[in-house]
Design a protein around this nucleic acid. Structure first.
Lengths: 159, 159
DNA sequence: GAAAAGTAATTGTATCAACAACTACTTTGC
DNA sequence: GCAAAGTAGTTGTTGATACAATTACTTTTC
């Protein structure tokens, strides 16, 4: 469109900077609120919840460690310790990966599945309350379109 | 639009959940990329940069500790240590707050101002590259409108 | 105007995440 | 088929953040 009006493409104008700051602030507000609520209502760190969800959604309730680390946005070593803690709590188990003795699965236990079931209501209500309900239907569609587009644009995500 | 189709207001539908997940993923991708680049190109943690910017933007290059903590989304104790580190590096100084001997200012030093000047180009380029440039002009306006609206809706932000 | 309540900042401590180095295993190359 | 290179996962260590308790001061209350 109009470029040479001091508004050429690539310029970090006030709208973009405003969007960026709002993005950061909203992320902080919502994730802090969700983590606090989940901790208070279910005694569960948000990172544990994320692992439970990823396993629940995976076929047979299990995923490879590296794979799971990518899904929950953790480093490999971070996931090792996280799964350690959750295993101690009885929510997941490690199982050998057949055919490659280096690898292992993290598998959801019955207790883990039950814990997720007992918790997800509260968390989803939180996501609605702090995020979903603040969007009109039209804005939800638009926001999703814009954000997924931005994700697809960069080679950032497949980090 | 149509409500009673299992899509009533308040329901966390696929669009909203998709937007939420894209939001989380984009935040992670962009902040990790920015932090890595800033560290690599300027040897500066992102949290330090945020403090420098907040002080630069404030009148006389100084802000109260608590005030600054809110601005950079840190706890009070977290900011104490962060300012400790930056003070050791000579980028900020603590100065007494006249009229209330409990309080102190964090003030930008000349070295801090210089360091910010030398760094902000790289960071702003990063924000453009990973965020701003992935938005059309129209989407930038829309995104900002949606996000600031969501922030205003909740009582989350003034945490 | 002294005691109680409140506030700004710091410190003790625990947690938790990342990086780098390591172990164990698998695949590739010759 | 053996050595070299690559990959999955774990462990040693460090750094950074938060919460709770503490210190120092200020404001309120009676």
């Amino acid at each position: 469109m109009a470029e040479p009006t001091g508004d050429r493409a690539g310029h970090l104008d006030a709208e973009r900077l405003g969007a960026w700051r709002a993005f950061l602030e909203l992320h902080h507000a919502v994730t802090v609120a969700l983590a606090d609520e989940l901790e208070a209502e279910a005694g569960l760190p948000l990172s544990w919840y994320d692992v439970l969800v990823q396993l629940e959604e995976a076929p047979e309730g299990r995923r490879r460690m590296q794979d799971l680390a990518d899904a929950v946005l953790f480093s490999a070593s971070g996931l090792t310790r996280l799964v350690d803690r959750m295993e101690r709590a009885g929510l997941v188990e490690r199982r050998p990966f057949p055919g490659d003795r280096r690898g292992s699965y993290a598998v959801l236990t019955d207790a883990g599945r039950e814990r997720l079931r007992a918790t997800s209501g509260a968390h989803l209500r939180g996501v609605r309350e702090h995020f979903g309900d603040r969007l009109t239907d039209a804005d939800a569609v638009t926001l999703r379109r814009i954000l997924t587009g931005m994700l697809a644009t960069g080679a950032d995500s497949p980090s």
